[in-house]
């Protein structure tokens, strides 16, 4: 009985392990090896830390990473600020029948590929776009305004793309919040803002954290949105990686940047968890 259980356990686990090993672990080992290889002055391939050293020596790489991380944090924060009232409305205020409908509305944009969604934004916002057409028509502006290719638009695009990944964990966290806690706080003379700060947010903390991790990682690792909506000025770190692999054909440097992105973003999340006094296991559960 026990051995039978063990066999079936490993049998069912096998595809997952294979998937993890073949598609994630194996390529990463190869990339890790690549990232420590480089040409010496003679043009021979040798083991070296140069690829990692470049990141810290060249300000452009380092600054691009800091900029990317900061904007990813800003994106996460904006997404949270927008998602909180949305999920509160869906869980606590909307009627049960409207709730399902509203959730579907949130899901709907994700049936379209990200590329198409971003092009949709571009059609709206570009100089000859829909928005400018109406602005010119109504006489609000005399000259068309270029609304694409700046940081604000890029962050807006990232927030739009990540919204769902914040709303869903917040909804499930809020569903377990007993209404009477909110009423009790109100009965004890708390204002709406105090209720939000002392009752709702502490209760939703695991949901907020898991949403924030997902949104932060998605924003940090996003390539399409910064590239298309932020244009040449976006200076997103993923573009640097892309450039190394494709433009400079320097796979060793690209692999090193990839690992640095992984390590640094994990570091940021670790600091975030420490600051909010949480453990990854609690958040994932």
């Amino acid at each position: 009985m026990k051995s039978g259980f063990r066999l079936s356990f490993w049998l069912f686990l096998a595809p997952v392990l294979l998937w993890l090993f073949l598609l994630i672990v194996l390529p990463h080992i190869d990339l890790l090896l690549l990232s420590f290889r480089g040409e010496n002055d003679m043009g021979d391939l040798v083991w070296t830390f140069d690829n990692y050293k470049n990141f810290f020596i060249e300000p452009i790489y380092w600054n691009t990473f800091v900029r990317t991380a900061l904007y990813a944090i800003v994106t996460t924060f904006c997404t949270f600020v927008l998602a909180l009232p949305v999920s509160f409305y869906i869980v606590k205020l909307a009627r049960p029948r409207t709730r399902g409908f509203l959730t579907v509305l949130l899901l709907l944009p994700f049936w379209v590929s990200e590329l198409v969604r971003v092009y949709g934004w571009m059609i709206l916002l570009r100089e000859s776009g829909v928005l400018n057409y109406f602005l010119l028509k109504t006489g609000l502006v005399q000259q068309p305004v270029e609304m694409l290719y700046n940081d604000a638009t890029m962050i807006m695009g990232l927030v739009y793309t990540s919204m769902l990944f914040m709303v869903v964990p917040l909804i499930s966290a809020m569903e377990s919040l007993d209404d009477s806690l909110i009423e009790a706080a109100s009965d004890l003379e708390a204002s709406r803002f105090t209720i939000l700060r002392t009752i709702i947010i502490p209760h939703c903390k695991p949901g907020i954290t898991s949403g924030a991790i997902v949104v932060f990682m998605l924003a940090l690792g996003n390539y399409l949105t910064p590239n298309l909506m932020g244009g040449k000025n976006s200076l997103w770190f993923t573009e640097q990686i892309y450039n190394q692999f494709i433009a400079s054909f320097n796979w060793n440097q690209g692999a090193a940047f990839g690992f640095l992105l992984l390590l640094l973003s994990s570091g940021i999340i670790w600091i975030g968890l420490k600051l909010s006094r949480q453990r990854l296991g609690e958040v994932a559960a």
Binding site: D178, S180, L181, E183, A184, A185, S186, D187, L188, E189, A190, S191, T198, I199, P202, H203
Partner: peptide, 21 residues
């Protein structure tokens, strides 16, 4: 007069103690 301005307090059926405090 909203509940947070009334000189009454309510002990809830399921008590509604704040578990985070």
């Amino acid at each position: 007069v909203p509940p947070n301005k009334r000189p009454v307090n309510l002990v809830f059926q399921h008590l509604a103690l704040f578990p985070m405090m």
